[in-house]
Write a protein that binds this DNA or RNA. Structure first.
Length: 973
RNA sequence: GCCCAGAUGGCGGAAUUGGUAGACGCGCUAGACUCAAAAUCUGGUUCUCGCAAGGGAGUGCAGGUUCGAUUCCUGUUCUGGGCACCA
C-alpha cells in the first residue's frame, strides 16, 4: 500500500537508508566531471539544539549541491563542527561536566537532527576542531604564522629565517649586523616579535577581580560581570596576536576578486578602515616630549584649538599639571571601567578632562591645551588627535562644553552654530595655507611638515591586530614554551600538543587560564608551557581546507587535492560573520598561499548570506502597581475566592493580563511577560489578534497553575474560571473567555519560549515538506519570522503533486502517451523558471513555480511520463525523497541523484499573441491583444481604434505614443 | 554613536533591465461532498465609493526625476544585524 498515498515517513526512511547503504553522497577527490565546492559556515554545536532558523542555510546549500550534481558536477558538500568555545566551558563551570563530554553529546544531538532533514553531506569528511587529529594542524599553522614575517618589499609572508639571515648579514635600520650578533637571545627575540605574524605583546583585557578571571565581552553587561555583577576593569596582560594589519591592503584588494554582496564588502572595507593622513609632532610646553597626533586633515592645522589624547596613554602622567592631577586620575579611573563601545557610543554626554599641559602649534607658536577624553582610543592612530572645532562636529561640541574659544579658518562657511566638515572652503586665517582650497591645502601642508621634519604622510588602518589568546581551557593549546620571558616554538614533530584533562575549570593564578593550575603539564624540562589557549576562530580559519583531505596524517591538506578542489565556489552563512571569521579566514588563506601550501589566496569565491529566522514571542502583561493603585477593572488589588485564602494582586509574577487592557496611553504601567504557548489567530474588526487558550497553557506548563490570568470577562486561577462579580467572586461556567496576547518578533531563543524545533515538523510533515517550506518562507538572504501555520500549504502541494502520479485506489496512473503542446509548454516554462531561479539563489520562487506547474498540470489532467518524469527531477533538489520514490516508480533503477537536469526548449513556450496593457497618461485603462510580432505602427492603429482608449482621449489627438515591444503601450495626451 | 541591511494586503512574500502591483501559499469567507466531522474540491478575498458598469486611492513617511517609479535620486522615521574575548 506504500505506493498508493503519500506516506512520507516510509518513503523518507527507505531512501535515507538506501543512500546511506550505497554511500550515495561520497565524493571522490578526482573526477572527469568539473568540480564544485559548496560549504556551509562551520556550526558551533550548541547545547540548545537546532531550531528552525539553523537549517535555513543548510537547506539552501543542499538544494544547490543537488542541483549542481544533476547538472553534471562533482560536488563537495561537507559538514563538521567548530567544537571549541566558551559555552561548553561555561557549562562545565556550572554543571561540572567536562567540555569534551558535553560537546560530544551536543554533536550527536546535532547530527541526529541534521540527518532527519535529509542532507547530502559526505559525512566521511566530517571534522571536529576539538580533536587532536584536527588541532594538530591548527597548531602547525600557528607555528607557520609564528615562524613567518611580512616582507614589505615582496608584500607577502616569508619564513622568519630569511629575516634572521638578513639581520645577521646586513642588520636593519635599527641595528647593524654586528650589533645583532651581539644581542642576547632575549634581545633578538624582542626584535623578531615585532615582525612575526603570530606574536606576543601586551594588551588590554576585561579583568574581573572578584572572579579572578578575564571575561569575554559577552560576559560583561553594563560594566559589571554577567555572573555576580562584579566590577570589570581594563587590565594589561601578555597576549598573543595575529598581525592581520600587515595584510590590510591585500585584504582590501582581494575584495575586488570575490563575489560577496556590496554591503558585505563595504562592511569589511569599513572595518579595515584605511585612511591617508599625516602624523604630526607637536612640542609640549615645558617638556622634551613630543605629542604625536594622527590627522586626515593637516590642512586645518591653523584651526587647532585643543588636543585630545587617549586617557590610557603613558604620556598623560608626564604632562598632567599638579593642579589637574587629581581630576585626571579620577577621569582615568572612570575610563578604565568603560568598554570601547561605550566610550564611542556616548555622544550626548560629553566627558573629558583638561590635563594642564599645552602643545605648541609649530607654525604659529600658539599654545594648545591638551585634554583627555574617552572617545579617543589608544589603539587607533597615535591615540591623540588635534581638534578643529570649526570643522568637526564632535570637536565643536567638546569645545562648547569646556568653553574653549573656537578659531575660524573657513570664514563664512562656519556660522558659529555648528561645525562644517567641508573640504571645499578656501582657508582663511591659516598662515602659509591662507587662500588655498582645503582639499588642495592637504598636500601643501604635508609637504611643509615633511620639509620641516615635524611630520610625515601616514596611511592608517582602523583595524587592529587580532587578539589570539584566551585565558580559557576549552581551546587549542599553544605549542609554545617560555624561558625567562622568552618564548620558543615547539618543533612540528612534537605536535599535537594535547589539551590535558582537567577536573576544575576555574581560572589560574594572576588571571591565567585553567591550564596554569596543572603544574605537571606547565613545567617541562624545555620550559614553561603557554597557559592560554587559542580563540574560537583558530580552528574555523582554515577548516574549508581540511574537508578536502580530512584523513591526511602527513599534512593538513595535500597540495594536489587543494589544487583540484580549489576555492569554495559557494559559501553560505550569516552576515554576523561579516568582519570576524571572514576576515580571519581570508588572512590565513593568504598566509598559506604565500608560504606555498595552497594555490589560491581567497578562500571563498561566492558568498551567499542567509537571513535569520526570527521567533514570534507571545506576550502577556504584568501590571506595575503603585501603592494606592487599583487594578484595571476598577477594583482593589485583592481577589477574594471563596474557599481559598484571599490573594493579593501585588505578587507580579502571578498575574498575567490579557493584552486588551494595554493601550498606548497606559502602556508604561505594564511590563511584558513572554508566554510559552502557541496562540490562535482570530480576526476581530479587521485586525488579527492572538488568542491564547489559558486552560491548555496551564495544562502544558503546570508551573503556571498558580498564575492568575486576567481578562475583562473573568479570571482563571487554580484551574477554574472566576467571575468578576461585584457581590461575590464565584466560579463561572464558561468556555475559555478570550485571553489575548500581543506578539513580538525577535531572535529565537529558549528563554523567550519562541523556538520551534525542526524535529517536530519533520515528524509531522516529513523532511521534504520541511525543506520546501523553509525555502518557501521568503528569500534566503532576508530575515523573517517563522510561522508554522503555512507549512500545511506546502504539504498539501506535495500531496497534490503525488496525486498526479498516483491514484489512491488505482495506484500508479502514469501513461506513455505523447504530451500535448499545452502540457509541454507548462513543463518547459517551469524548467526555465526553476533553473534560472536556482542559479540566482531565489529558492523561494522555485517553490512557487513548482506549485503553479502542478496546478496547471492538474487542470490539464496530465498523467504523461514525458512530462511527469522531468518534473520529478526538477523536484529532486528540494524534495529528494519524494523525487526518488517517484523516479523509481516510473521504472528507473538508477538514482535520481545522478539524473540529468531537464533541458529547456524555447520552441515549446513560443507565443503568437501578446496581451498588452494600455495606459493613458500612465494610468492603466485596458488591455489589448496583439500579434507577438506587431510593430509600433500596428500597435498604434489598434490602440487608437480601441473603444476604451477613445473614451479617455475624448476626441483629442494624443501628444505621444509609447510602445515598448513585448511590454506595454502608453498613450500621452 | 558608528557601519551594513530592510520596510509591499490580515500574514509570509512575488513583480529578474524603470513598463499590467499583490504571483504562490497561509488565513478568512461562500459553496460542493458528508448524518456529521476530517480530508478533498470549486469560487471570492488590497482599501474605498457604487446594485452594477465603472471610478478613486495605494508598495514606511516627505519631496524629486520620468510618458511611466515597489524599482532611480534627496531627506526622514522605524526595525534588524555587526562593532574586535559568543560563535
Amino acid at each position: 500500500m506504500l505506493l498508493m498515498e503519500y506516506n512520507f515517513n516510509a518513503i523518507e526512511k527507505k531512501w535515507q537508508q538506501q543512500w546511506n547503504d550505497t554511500k550515495a553522497y561520497q565524493v571522490p577527490n578526482n573526477s572527469s566531471k568539473p568540480k564544485y565546492y559548496v560549504l556551509d559556515m562551520f556550526p558551533y554545536p550548541s547545547g540548545a539544539g537546532l531550531h528552525v532558523g539553523h537549517p535555513l542555510g543548510y537547506i539552501a546549500s543542499d538544494i544547490f549541491s543537488r542541483y549542481k550534481r544533476l547538472k553534471g558536477y562533482n560536488v563537495l558538500h561537507p559538514m563538521g563542527y567548530d567544537a571549541f568555545g566558551l559555552p561548553a566551558e561555561q557549562y562545565a563551570l556550572e554543571h561540572g561536566v567536562h567540555p569534551a563530554v558535553s560537546t560530544e553529546q551536543n554533536i550527536n544531538n546535532f547530527r541526529a537532527q541534521l540527518d532527519k532533514i535529509g542532507f547530502c553531506y559526505d559525512w566521511d569528511r566530517e571534522v571536529n576542531t576539538s580533536k587532536p587529529e584536527y588541532y594538530k594542524w591548527t597548531q602547525k599553522i600557528f607555528l607557520d604564522l609564528y615562524n613567518s614575517y611580512f616582507c614589505n618589499t615582496q608584500q607577502k609572508a616569508r619564513p622568519i629565517a630569511e629575516l634572521i639571515a638578513k639581520y645577521e648579514t646586513s642588520g636593519s635600520k635599527h641595528f647593524t649586523a654586528a650589533e645583532w650578533q651581539a644581542f642576547s637571545v632575549a634581545e633578538k627575540e624582542e626584535w623578531l616579535m615585532k615582525r612575526r605574524l603570530a606574536f606576543s605583546a601586551y594588551g588590554e583585557v576585561n579583568w574581573c577581580e572578584a572572579l579572578g578571571t578575564v571575561l569575554a565581552n559577552d560576559e560583561v553587561v553594563n560594566g559589571v560581570s554577567e555572573r555576580g555583577g562584579h566590577p570589570v576593569i581594563k587590565k594589561k596582560m601578555r597576549q598573543w596576536y595575529l598581525r592581520i594589519t600587515a595584510y590590510a591592503d591585500r585584504l582590501l584588494e582581494g575584495l575586488n576578486r570575490v563575489d560577496f554582496s556590496d554591503s558585505m564588502k563595504e562592511m569589511q572595507r569599513n572595518w579595515i578602515g584605511r585612511s591617508e593622513g599625516a602624523e604630526i609632532d607637536f612640542a609640549i610646553k615645558g617638556s622634551d616630549q613630543k605629542l604625536k597626533v594622527y590627522t586626515t586633515r593637516p590642512d586645518t592645522i591653523f584651526g587647532v584649538d585643543f588636543m585630545v589624547i587617549a586617557p590610557e596613554l603613558e604620556l598623560v602622567n608626564q604632562i598632567k599639571s599638579s593642579e589637574q592631577a587629581e581630576a585626571v586620575d579620577n577621569y582615568v579611573a572612570y575610563v578604565k571601567s568603560r568598554s570601547d563601545r561605550e566610550r564611542q557610543a556616548e555622544v550626548k554626554q560629553i566627558t573629558g578632562c583638561f590635563t594642564g599641559g599645552y602643545a605648541i602649534n609649530p607654525f604659529n607658536g600658539v599654545e594648545i591645551p591638551i585634554y583627555i577624553a574617552e572617545y579617543v582610543l589608544a589603539g587607533y592612530g597615535t591615540g591623540a588627535i588635534m581638534a578643529v572645532p570649526c570643522g568637526d562636529e564632535r570637536d565643536f561640541k567638546f569645545a562648547q562644553h569646556f568653553n574653549i574659544p573656537i578659531t575660524n579658518i573657513i570664514g563664512k562657511h562656519f556660522n558659529g552654530q555648528e561645525a562644517n566638515p567641508t573640504k571645499d572652503a578656501v582657508l582663511e586665517n591659516s598662515g602659509f595655507l591662507t587662500g588655498l582650497l582645503m582639499k588642495d591645502a592637504i598636500a601643501v601642508a604635508n609637504d611643509k611638515l615633511e620639509e620641516l621634519g615635524i611630520g610625515k604622510r601616514k596611511v592608517n588602518y582602523k583595524m587592529r591586530d587580532a587578539g589570539f589568546s584566551r585565558q580559557r581551557y576549552w581551546g587549542e593549546p599553544f605549542p609554545i614554551l617560555w624561558n625567562d620571558g622568552v618564548p620558543t616554538a615547539m618543533p612540528e614533530t612534537a605536535l599535537p600538543l594535547n589539551l590535558p584533562h582537567v577536573e576544575k575549570y576555574g581560572p589560574g593564578p594572576e588571571g591565567e587560564g585553567p591550564l596554569a593550575n596543572i603544574a605537571e603539564w606547565v613545567n617541562t624540562p624545555e620550559g614553561k608551557r603557554e597557559t592560554s589557549t587559542m580563540p574560537g576562530y583558530a580552528g574555523s580559519s582554515w577548516y574549508f581546507l581540511r574537508y578536502m583531505d580530512p584523513h591526511n596524517e602527513a599534512e593538513f591538506c595535500n597540495r594536489a587535492v587543494s589544487d583540484y578542489w580549489n576555492q569554495v565556489d559557494l559559501y553560505v552563512g550569516g552576515t554576523e560573520h561579516a568582519v570576524g571569521h571572514l576576515l580571519y579566514s581570508r588572512m590565513w588563506t593568504k598566509v598559506l598561499y604565500d608560504l606555498g601550501y595552497i594555490g589560491f589566496d581567497e578562500p571563498f569565491k561566492k558568498l551567499l548570506n542567509q537571513g535569520m529566522i526570527q521567533g514570534v514571542s507571545q506576550v502577556a502583561y504584568i501590571r506595575k502597581f503603585s501603592k494606592d493603585d487599583i487594578n484595571p477593572l476598577g477594583r482593589s488589588n485583592t481577589v477574594i475566592i471563596p474557599g481559598l485564602p484571599p490573594f493579593s494582586l501585588e505578587e507580579p509574577e502571578l498575574q498575567l493580563y490579557s493584552a486588551e487592557f494595554v493601550t498606548e496611553d497606559n502602556r508604561e504601567y505594564y511590563a511584558e511577560y513572554k508566554i510559552p504557548i502557541d496562540v490562535v489567530n482570530v480576526n476581530m474588526q479587521n485586525q488579527t489578534r492572538n488568542k491564547m487558550d489559558v486552560e491548555i497553557a496551564v495544562s502544558k506548563y503546570p508551573a503556571r497553575l498558580n498564575c492568575v490570568f486576567i481578562t475583562s470577562e473573568a479570571f482563571f486561577y487554580k484551574g477554574l474560571w472566576w467571575s468578576w462579580n461585584e457581590e461575590k467572586t464565584e466560579v463561572i461556567n464558561v468556555s475559555s473567555p478570550d485571553f489575548f496576547t500581543s506578539s513580538v518578533v525577535e531572535k529565537m531563543s529558549k528563554s523567550k519560549f519562541n523556538t520551534v524545533n525542526p524535529d517536530d515538523l519533520v515528524h509531522k510533515f516529513g523532511a521534504d515538506t520541511f525543506r520546501m517550506y523553509e525555502m518557501f518562507l521568503g528569500p534566503v538572504e532576508v530575515s523573517k519570522p517563522w510561522d508554522t501555520k503555512g507549512i500545511e500549504g506546502v504539504h498539501r502541494f506535495l500531496k497534490k503533486l503525488w496525486r498526479l502520479y498516483f491514484d489512491e485506489v488505482k495506484g500508479l496512473q502514469v501513461t506513455q502517451d505523447e504530451p500535448t503542446a499545452d502540457e509541454l509548454k507548462v513543463l518547459h516554462k517551469t524548467i526555465k523558471k526553476v533553473e534560472e531561479d536556482i542559479e540566482r539563489f531565489s529558492f523561494n520562487t522555485v517553490v512557487s513555480a513548482l506549485m503553479v506547474c502542478v496546478n496547471e498540470l492538474n487542470d490539464l489532467k496530465c498523467r504523461k511520463a514525458a512530462i511527469l518524469e522531468p518534473l520529478a527531477i526538477l523536484l529532486a533538489p528540494y524534495a529528494p525523497h519524494m523525487a526518488a520514490e517517484l523516479y523509481s516508480a516510473l521504472g528507473h533503477t538508477d538514482s535520481v541523484l545522478d539524473a540529468t537536469f531537464p533541458v529547456f526548449n524555447p520552441a515549446h513556450v513560443l507565443e503568437s499573441t501578446k496581451e498588452y496593457p494600455v495606459s493613458v497618461n500612465g494610468k492603466l485603462r485596458t488591455t489589448l491583444m496583439l500579434p507577438a510580432d506587431a510593430d509600433q505602427a500596428a500597435a498604434e492603429a489598434a490602440t487608437l481604434a480601441n473603444e476604451v482608449v477613445q473614451k479617455w482621449l475624448e476626441g483629442k489627438t494624443p501628444k505621444k505614443f509609447i510602445f515598448v515591444k513585448g511590454r506595454m503601450i502608453n498613450v500621452v495626451m
